[in-house]
Amino acid sequence: MVTSIIILSIIGLVSATLLYVISRKFHVEEDSRIDEIESILPGANCGGCGFAGCRNFAEQCVKATSLDNLLCPVGGNAVMQKIAPILGMQAVEQAPRIAVVRCNGSCENRPQTSHYEGAHSCAVVAALYSGESNCNYGCLGEGDCAAACDFGGITMDPITRLPYVDPNICIACGSCVKACPRNIIELRKRQEPRVFVACNNRDKGIIARKVCSIACIGCGKCAKSCPNGAITITDNLAYIDDSLCLSCQACVAGCPTHAIHVVNESAKENISINEKESAIC
C-alpha cells in the first residue's frame, strides 16, 4: 500500500517536472496582440476572410501594414473598428454585402425535363448533365450552397427548389459562392433596394428563352435605360455592377422577360422570388 503510494507520487512528480521543463524549453514567443485580436474575433472559423480560421486571420492582421484588404465578414465593421486601435491602424468602413442567387428557375418558369437520381450534390449533377431542366447555367437545386453555409443562412425552398438567402443571417463569407458549381451565387452590396439580374444563362437569347421563360436573353434594353452605365452585356447576359447601380430601377420595367429583380428588405415588397405560389415539381 505505502509502496504504491510512493511509486505513484514519484511518477507524478517526475512527469510534472518533465512537462514543466519541456514547456519552458520549447516556449515560443508570440506577439501578444495575436491573442488579443483573436479574442475579439467571433471565432466562427468560417474562412470567409480568406484565411484558415480566426487565429490565422489575427496573425495576418498583425503582419499587415494596413487593414484595407482585411475584413472579418462575420464581425463586420464593428469588429474591425475594435481591432484597428490594437494595431494602431485605421479600419476603412466597408459596405456590407450579401449573397445573391442569380437564378429564378422555379418549376413553372423552367420546365423539368428529366428526373435526377443519385448523390444529392450539385457538383455531381453538374459533372453529369444539364440538370433536371435544360438550362445549362441555372440552379441545380441539390443544395451544395446550403450545405456549405456554416451559419444556416441558406435554405432550399421546397417549392421553387431554389436557395433562399436569409438576409438576417448572411454575413457574406462567400462559402456558398465557392460551393456553387455553376457560379450562380454572387456577393453584392446590401443596397436598398437591391437590383440584380436573376439569371446566369450565357446562351443566345433564343436558346435561353427556350429552356426558361424568365431567362435573360441579352437584348440590352436594360443597358440602354440605365442612367449611370451600370449595366453591361457579356455573352448574352446582362450584369448590373453594384458599385455603379443607383437603385433607380429604371431597368426593371423594360426587361421583356422580367429577369431583373428588385429586393427591398426594409419595405418588404419583394418583386421576385415566390411571387406566385408554384406547384411542386
Binding site: Q112, H115, Y116, E117, G118, V124
Partner: peptide, 8 residues
C-alpha cells in the same frame, strides 16, 4: 416523357 438520369 421524363427520363431518369443518374451517374453510372
Amino acid at each position: 416523357m421524363e427520363l431518369t438520369v443518374s451517374p453510372a
